[in-house]
Amino acid sequence: MTATNSEATLPAQGIEAPRSGRIDPKYLRSNPSKGAFEMWAWLFMRISGAALVILIFVHLWTNLMVGDGIHQIDFAFVAGKWANPVWQFWDLTMLWLAMLHGTNGMRTIINDYAEKDSTRLALKSILYLAAAVIIILGTLVIFTFEPCLVDESGALLEYAPSFCETVVN
């Protein structure tokens, strides 16, 4: 991405940026004050992207490529993983980075293709609401999850992971 075609000048040389002043401001995609935000968004996409490559590749490896792969995934498998704080932190980081990375990508696409201000506002409102709901929901699930569920009599439910037997007894 190039810098915005704003009224910006290069102060040191006193030279105007190319095309500065020749474009009606209403056709500019953003105003100069948004420049810093877009720069941080650009940088975030690169940093979070590199982190997500590692986070997601390991996620796919441990869940699909080792053990019984796709067949092993059930309640007990998730419970077994989240009994370890490392995997809780891993999944939490993955959730937040992936959602922020994906939401920013969708924001870019909306800005590119939705031409009317009202359409952009509507689409971005839905996007941000959905992102907030998913991030909060996912975070709560990771931290309020109870792996060793028991029935009224205090007996372990049959779906509980095996390590629960040593915890309850």
Partner: peptide
């Protein structure tokens, strides 16, 4: 995220 949330 929604399907995983069903563990709850």
């Amino acid at each position: 995220v929604l399907d995983t949330s069903l563990v709850r």
